[in-house]
Amino acid sequence: MPVSDLLASGFDVLLCIGLLWLAWQAITGTGLFRSVVMFMVFGLMMAVTWARLGSPDLALAEAAIGAGITGALLLNACRAAVSEMRSDEQPLRDRPSGVPKWLALPLSLAAGVGLAWLMHSIPRDGGPTPEAAIKAAETHFLDNPITSVLLDFRAIDTLLEMAVLLLALVGARVLLDQRRLPALYPVPDHPMPMLPSLLAMITPVLLLTGLYLFWAGSHAPGGAFQAGALLGALGVMYQLAGRFTPTHEPGTVNALLITVGLGLFSLFACLSLLWAPAPLSHPEQGAYALVLLIEFALMLSIAATLVLLFVGSRSLQLRRSTNHPGGRQ
Protein backbone atom coordinates (compact mmCIF):
# COMPACT_ATOMS: atom_id res chain seq x y z
CA MET A 1 0.00 0.00 0.00
CA PRO A 2 1.53 3.35 -0.95
CA VAL A 3 2.28 5.79 1.82
CA SER A 4 -0.31 8.27 0.69
CA ASP A 5 -3.06 5.68 0.94
CA LEU A 6 -1.87 4.68 4.35
CA LEU A 7 -1.91 8.29 5.45
CA ALA A 8 -5.39 8.74 4.05
CA SER A 9 -6.65 5.67 5.89
CA GLY A 10 -5.05 6.83 9.08
CA PHE A 11 -6.76 10.19 8.64
CA ASP A 12 -10.10 8.49 8.07
CA VAL A 13 -9.69 6.42 11.23
CA LEU A 14 -8.88 9.52 13.25
CA LEU A 15 -11.80 11.35 11.67
CA CYS A 16 -14.23 8.58 12.59
CA ILE A 17 -12.93 8.31 16.13
CA GLY A 18 -13.22 12.07 16.44
CA LEU A 19 -16.81 12.05 15.16
CA LEU A 20 -17.85 9.36 17.61
CA TRP A 21 -16.12 11.03 20.53
CA LEU A 22 -17.65 14.42 19.78
CA ALA A 23 -21.12 12.98 19.33
CA TRP A 24 -20.82 11.09 22.60
CA GLN A 25 -19.61 14.19 24.40
CA ALA A 26 -22.37 16.33 22.93
CA ILE A 27 -25.03 13.95 24.15
CA THR A 28 -23.77 12.63 27.45
CA GLY A 29 -21.66 15.55 28.66
CA THR A 30 -22.73 17.79 31.49
CA GLY A 31 -23.54 21.38 30.80
CA LEU A 32 -25.53 22.68 27.91
CA PHE A 33 -22.90 25.04 26.56
CA ARG A 34 -20.29 22.32 26.42
CA SER A 35 -22.69 20.02 24.57
CA VAL A 36 -23.48 22.69 22.05
CA VAL A 37 -19.83 23.46 21.37
CA MET A 38 -19.09 19.77 20.97
CA PHE A 39 -21.97 19.49 18.54
CA MET A 40 -20.71 22.42 16.51
CA VAL A 41 -17.26 20.89 16.23
CA PHE A 42 -18.98 17.64 15.30
CA GLY A 43 -20.68 19.53 12.47
CA LEU A 44 -17.36 20.84 11.21
CA MET A 45 -15.86 17.33 11.33
CA MET A 46 -18.87 16.11 9.36
CA ALA A 47 -18.06 18.70 6.73
CA VAL A 48 -14.56 17.25 6.49
CA THR A 49 -16.10 13.78 6.25
CA TRP A 50 -18.31 14.79 3.35
CA ALA A 51 -15.28 16.16 1.56
CA ARG A 52 -13.42 12.91 2.19
CA LEU A 53 -16.35 10.96 0.75
CA GLY A 54 -16.27 12.94 -2.45
CA SER A 55 -19.12 15.38 -1.78
CA PRO A 56 -17.68 18.89 -1.67
CA ASP A 57 -21.18 20.30 -2.16
CA LEU A 58 -22.28 18.69 1.05
CA ALA A 59 -19.12 19.76 2.82
CA LEU A 60 -19.96 23.36 2.00
CA ALA A 61 -23.58 22.94 2.99
CA GLU A 62 -22.74 21.21 6.24
CA ALA A 63 -20.17 23.82 7.19
CA ALA A 64 -22.55 26.68 6.42
CA ILE A 65 -25.87 25.22 7.49
CA GLY A 66 -25.18 22.23 9.68
CA ALA A 67 -22.37 23.70 11.74
CA GLY A 68 -22.79 27.42 11.11
CA ILE A 69 -26.46 28.27 11.26
CA THR A 70 -27.46 25.36 13.50
CA GLY A 71 -24.58 26.27 15.78
CA ALA A 72 -25.70 29.89 15.95
CA LEU A 73 -29.23 28.78 16.75
CA LEU A 74 -27.99 26.46 19.47
CA LEU A 75 -25.83 29.18 21.00
CA ASN A 76 -28.96 31.31 21.01
CA ALA A 77 -30.66 28.57 22.99
CA CYS A 78 -27.79 28.54 25.49
CA ARG A 79 -28.00 32.27 25.91
CA ALA A 80 -31.75 32.08 26.39
CA ALA A 81 -31.36 29.28 28.92
CA VAL A 82 -28.83 31.28 30.87
CA SER A 83 -30.63 34.61 30.78
CA GLU A 84 -34.19 33.45 31.24
CA MET A 85 -33.84 30.72 33.79
CA ARG A 86 -34.40 31.48 37.39
CA SER A 87 -31.78 30.37 39.83
CA ASP A 88 -34.18 28.32 41.91
CA GLU A 89 -34.96 26.05 39.02
CA GLN A 90 -32.69 23.50 37.48
CA PRO A 91 -34.34 22.84 34.16
CA LEU A 92 -31.14 21.62 32.58
CA ARG A 93 -30.93 18.67 34.89
CA ASP A 94 -32.46 15.60 33.37
CA ARG A 95 -35.57 14.29 34.91
CA PRO A 96 -35.63 10.52 35.30
CA SER A 97 -36.39 9.29 31.83
CA GLY A 98 -38.85 6.65 30.77
CA VAL A 99 -36.10 4.44 29.43
CA PRO A 100 -33.48 3.31 31.94
CA LYS A 101 -29.86 3.34 30.84
CA TRP A 102 -29.33 -0.39 31.20
CA LEU A 103 -32.05 -0.91 28.64
CA ALA A 104 -31.27 2.04 26.38
CA LEU A 105 -27.59 1.23 25.98
CA PRO A 106 -27.84 -2.35 24.68
CA LEU A 107 -30.88 -1.41 22.60
CA SER A 108 -29.15 1.44 20.81
CA LEU A 109 -25.91 -0.49 20.48
CA ALA A 110 -27.73 -3.43 18.93
CA ALA A 111 -29.52 -1.11 16.51
CA GLY A 112 -26.29 0.65 15.57
CA VAL A 113 -24.21 -2.48 15.11
CA GLY A 114 -27.02 -4.15 13.24
CA LEU A 115 -27.31 -1.21 10.88
CA ALA A 116 -23.59 -1.04 10.34
CA TRP A 117 -23.50 -4.73 9.50
CA LEU A 118 -26.50 -4.34 7.23
CA MET A 119 -25.02 -1.41 5.36
CA HIS A 120 -21.78 -3.26 5.00
CA SER A 121 -23.42 -6.42 3.71
CA ILE A 122 -25.65 -4.77 1.10
CA PRO A 123 -23.80 -5.15 -2.19
CA ARG A 124 -22.88 -1.88 -3.88
CA ASP A 125 -24.03 -2.73 -7.36
CA GLY A 126 -25.70 0.53 -8.14
CA GLY A 127 -29.17 0.06 -9.47
CA PRO A 128 -31.55 1.60 -11.98
CA THR A 129 -31.78 5.05 -10.39
CA PRO A 130 -28.04 5.65 -9.89
CA GLU A 131 -27.34 4.45 -13.40
CA ALA A 132 -30.01 6.67 -14.90
CA ALA A 133 -28.97 9.66 -12.81
CA ILE A 134 -25.27 9.41 -13.60
CA LYS A 135 -26.03 8.98 -17.28
CA ALA A 136 -28.53 11.82 -17.43
CA ALA A 137 -26.26 14.17 -15.49
CA GLU A 138 -23.52 13.74 -18.07
CA THR A 139 -25.51 15.37 -20.82
CA HIS A 140 -27.47 17.78 -18.66
CA PHE A 141 -27.32 21.52 -19.29
CA LEU A 142 -26.21 21.98 -15.69
CA ASP A 143 -22.70 20.70 -15.23
CA ASN A 144 -22.95 20.07 -11.52
CA PRO A 145 -24.78 16.74 -11.23
CA ILE A 146 -26.15 17.58 -7.78
CA THR A 147 -27.64 20.84 -9.00
CA SER A 148 -29.21 19.02 -11.91
CA VAL A 149 -30.82 16.58 -9.47
CA LEU A 150 -31.96 19.36 -7.15
CA LEU A 151 -33.37 21.68 -9.79
CA ASP A 152 -34.42 19.34 -12.52
CA PHE A 153 -34.70 15.60 -11.89
CA ARG A 154 -36.04 15.94 -8.37
CA ALA A 155 -37.08 19.59 -8.48
CA ILE A 156 -40.24 19.00 -6.48
CA ASP A 157 -38.19 17.85 -3.49
CA THR A 158 -36.34 21.14 -3.50
CA LEU A 159 -39.54 23.09 -3.97
CA LEU A 160 -41.35 21.39 -1.11
CA GLU A 161 -38.26 21.68 1.06
CA MET A 162 -38.58 25.45 0.70
CA ALA A 163 -42.08 25.07 2.10
CA VAL A 164 -40.62 23.19 5.07
CA LEU A 165 -38.14 25.99 5.71
CA LEU A 166 -40.88 28.59 5.46
CA LEU A 167 -43.08 26.59 7.83
CA ALA A 168 -40.36 26.67 10.47
CA LEU A 169 -40.53 30.46 10.34
CA VAL A 170 -44.32 30.55 10.38
CA GLY A 171 -44.27 28.16 13.34
CA ALA A 172 -41.88 30.44 15.17
CA ARG A 173 -44.22 33.35 14.45
CA VAL A 174 -47.12 31.46 16.00
CA LEU A 175 -45.08 31.36 19.19
CA LEU A 176 -44.12 35.01 18.87
CA ASP A 177 -47.75 36.01 18.57
CA GLN A 178 -48.39 34.44 21.94
CA ARG A 179 -45.55 35.87 23.89
CA ARG A 180 -42.84 38.25 22.94
CA LEU A 181 -39.74 37.11 24.65
CA PRO A 182 -37.11 39.71 25.32
CA ALA A 183 -34.58 40.13 22.54
CA LEU A 184 -31.52 38.00 23.06
CA TYR A 185 -29.28 40.56 21.48
CA PRO A 186 -30.50 44.00 22.40
CA VAL A 187 -29.38 46.66 19.98
CA PRO A 188 -26.36 48.35 21.54
CA ASP A 189 -26.53 52.12 21.86
CA HIS A 190 -22.89 52.49 21.08
CA PRO A 191 -21.56 49.73 18.87
CA MET A 192 -18.25 48.27 19.86
CA PRO A 193 -15.43 50.33 18.35
CA MET A 194 -13.93 47.51 16.32
CA LEU A 195 -17.18 46.27 14.90
CA PRO A 196 -17.86 48.68 12.05
CA SER A 197 -14.43 48.24 10.54
CA LEU A 198 -14.59 44.48 11.02
CA LEU A 199 -17.98 44.40 9.37
CA ALA A 200 -16.75 46.60 6.57
CA MET A 201 -13.97 44.13 5.97
CA ILE A 202 -16.00 40.99 6.18
CA THR A 203 -19.05 42.14 4.23
CA PRO A 204 -17.48 42.16 0.77
CA VAL A 205 -15.70 38.86 1.48
CA LEU A 206 -18.84 37.01 2.54
CA LEU A 207 -20.96 38.68 -0.10
CA LEU A 208 -18.54 37.79 -2.86
CA THR A 209 -18.07 34.25 -1.57
CA GLY A 210 -21.81 33.81 -1.36
CA LEU A 211 -22.40 35.12 -4.84
CA TYR A 212 -19.54 33.01 -6.14
CA LEU A 213 -21.03 29.89 -4.57
CA PHE A 214 -24.36 30.73 -6.13
CA TRP A 215 -22.79 31.29 -9.51
CA ALA A 216 -20.58 28.23 -9.25
CA GLY A 217 -23.45 25.96 -8.32
CA SER A 218 -24.38 25.33 -11.92
CA HIS A 219 -21.02 23.81 -12.81
CA ALA A 220 -18.94 23.34 -9.65
CA PRO A 221 -19.56 22.64 -5.95
CA GLY A 222 -21.90 25.25 -4.52
CA GLY A 223 -25.41 26.40 -5.16
CA ALA A 224 -28.35 28.24 -3.72
CA PHE A 225 -28.32 26.51 -0.34
CA GLN A 226 -24.68 27.03 0.44
CA ALA A 227 -24.78 30.60 -0.82
CA GLY A 228 -28.01 31.30 1.05
CA ALA A 229 -26.58 29.99 4.29
CA LEU A 230 -23.47 32.13 3.85
CA LEU A 231 -25.52 35.25 3.22
CA GLY A 232 -27.61 34.24 6.22
CA ALA A 233 -24.46 34.19 8.30
CA LEU A 234 -23.69 37.69 7.08
CA GLY A 235 -27.16 38.77 8.11
CA VAL A 236 -26.65 37.26 11.55
CA MET A 237 -23.47 39.30 11.94
CA TYR A 238 -25.27 42.47 10.95
CA GLN A 239 -27.89 41.72 13.54
CA LEU A 240 -25.29 41.07 16.22
CA ALA A 241 -23.58 44.33 15.32
CA GLY A 242 -26.84 46.16 15.77
CA ARG A 243 -27.23 47.09 12.14
CA PHE A 244 -30.63 45.43 11.94
CA THR A 245 -33.33 46.35 14.35
CA PRO A 246 -35.75 43.53 15.15
CA THR A 247 -39.33 44.70 15.04
CA HIS A 248 -42.69 43.09 15.43
CA GLU A 249 -44.22 45.12 12.67
CA PRO A 250 -44.74 43.28 9.41
CA GLY A 251 -42.27 44.38 6.78
CA THR A 252 -43.00 44.18 3.08
CA VAL A 253 -39.43 43.61 2.03
CA ASN A 254 -39.05 40.90 4.66
CA ALA A 255 -42.19 39.17 3.47
CA LEU A 256 -41.04 39.37 -0.13
CA LEU A 257 -37.63 37.97 0.68
CA ILE A 258 -38.86 34.95 2.59
CA THR A 259 -41.47 34.02 -0.02
CA VAL A 260 -39.75 34.81 -3.29
CA GLY A 261 -38.02 31.43 -3.58
CA LEU A 262 -41.09 29.31 -2.96
CA GLY A 263 -43.32 31.66 -4.91
CA LEU A 264 -41.18 31.81 -8.00
CA PHE A 265 -40.50 28.10 -8.01
CA SER A 266 -44.22 27.32 -7.66
CA LEU A 267 -45.08 29.77 -10.42
CA PHE A 268 -42.55 28.06 -12.64
CA ALA A 269 -44.13 24.70 -11.82
CA CYS A 270 -47.54 25.96 -12.92
CA LEU A 271 -46.35 27.88 -15.96
CA SER A 272 -44.34 24.95 -17.26
CA LEU A 273 -47.63 23.37 -18.28
CA LEU A 274 -47.66 25.96 -21.07
CA TRP A 275 -44.70 24.34 -22.83
CA ALA A 276 -44.67 20.77 -21.50
CA PRO A 277 -47.17 18.07 -20.60
CA ALA A 278 -45.92 17.72 -17.02
CA PRO A 279 -45.26 20.37 -14.37
CA LEU A 280 -41.69 21.35 -13.48
CA SER A 281 -40.42 20.67 -17.00
CA HIS A 282 -37.72 23.03 -18.20
CA PRO A 283 -38.27 24.78 -21.52
CA GLU A 284 -35.97 23.98 -24.42
CA GLN A 285 -34.82 27.57 -24.68
CA GLY A 286 -33.53 29.51 -21.75
CA ALA A 287 -33.56 26.72 -19.22
CA TYR A 288 -30.18 27.75 -17.90
CA ALA A 289 -31.24 31.33 -17.27
CA LEU A 290 -34.43 30.11 -15.66
CA VAL A 291 -32.51 27.87 -13.28
CA LEU A 292 -30.23 30.73 -12.34
CA LEU A 293 -33.22 32.94 -11.66
CA ILE A 294 -34.90 30.33 -9.48
CA GLU A 295 -31.67 29.61 -7.66
CA PHE A 296 -31.15 33.30 -7.01
CA ALA A 297 -34.63 33.56 -5.53
CA LEU A 298 -34.04 30.45 -3.44
CA MET A 299 -30.80 31.91 -2.16
CA LEU A 300 -32.50 35.13 -1.07
CA SER A 301 -35.29 33.26 0.67
CA ILE A 302 -32.95 30.88 2.44
CA ALA A 303 -30.76 33.71 3.68
CA ALA A 304 -33.68 35.83 4.87
CA THR A 305 -35.49 32.92 6.52
CA LEU A 306 -32.40 31.74 8.37
CA VAL A 307 -31.66 35.24 9.67
CA LEU A 308 -35.22 35.70 10.88
CA LEU A 309 -35.18 32.29 12.54
CA PHE A 310 -32.00 33.29 14.31
CA VAL A 311 -33.28 36.66 15.44
CA GLY A 312 -36.66 35.39 16.58
CA SER A 313 -38.57 38.49 15.60
CA ARG A 314 -41.17 39.09 12.98
CA SER A 315 -39.03 41.23 10.76
CA LEU A 316 -35.84 43.21 10.60
CA GLN A 317 -35.25 46.79 9.65
CA LEU A 318 -32.01 48.28 8.56
CA ARG A 319 -30.99 50.90 11.05
CA ARG A 320 -31.12 54.32 9.52
CA SER A 321 -28.86 56.04 12.00
CA THR A 322 -25.73 54.45 10.63
CA ASN A 323 -24.67 55.67 7.25
CA HIS A 324 -24.04 52.20 5.92
CA PRO A 325 -25.92 51.65 2.68
CA GLY A 326 -27.74 48.39 2.30
CA GLY A 327 -30.61 46.99 0.33
CA ARG A 328 -32.02 44.68 2.96
CA GLN A 329 -34.74 45.90 5.21
Binding site: L73, E131, A172, I302, L306
Partner: peptide, 30 residues
Protein backbone atom coordinates in the same frame (compact mmCIF):
# COMPACT_ATOMS: atom_id res chain seq x y z
CA UNK B 1 -21.69 3.36 -6.52
CA UNK B 2 -19.94 1.95 -9.57
CA UNK B 3 -19.24 4.76 -12.09
CA UNK B 4 -20.28 7.06 -9.24
CA UNK B 5 -20.47 9.15 -7.17
CA UNK B 6 -24.23 8.91 -7.46
CA UNK B 7 -25.65 12.47 -7.27
CA UNK B 8 -29.11 11.38 -6.09
CA UNK B 9 -28.20 10.56 -2.45
CA UNK B 10 -26.05 13.67 -2.35
CA UNK B 11 -29.00 15.78 -3.37
CA UNK B 12 -31.20 13.91 -0.89
CA UNK B 13 -28.78 14.65 1.95
CA UNK B 14 -28.58 18.31 0.96
CA UNK B 15 -32.38 18.46 1.15
CA UNK B 16 -32.21 16.52 4.41
CA UNK B 17 -29.77 19.01 5.94
CA UNK B 18 -32.07 21.92 5.16
CA UNK B 19 -35.04 20.05 6.58
CA UNK B 20 -33.02 19.20 9.68
CA UNK B 21 -32.08 22.82 10.25
CA UNK B 22 -35.72 23.87 9.78
CA UNK B 23 -36.91 21.35 12.35
CA UNK B 24 -34.11 22.31 14.72
CA UNK B 25 -34.85 26.00 14.42
CA UNK B 26 -38.54 25.55 15.13
CA UNK B 27 -37.83 23.10 17.94
CA UNK B 28 -35.47 25.57 19.60
CA UNK B 29 -38.06 28.35 19.35
CA UNK B 30 -40.65 26.02 20.86
Amino acid sequence: TPDGPDPVPQAMVLTGIVIAVSLTAFALAL
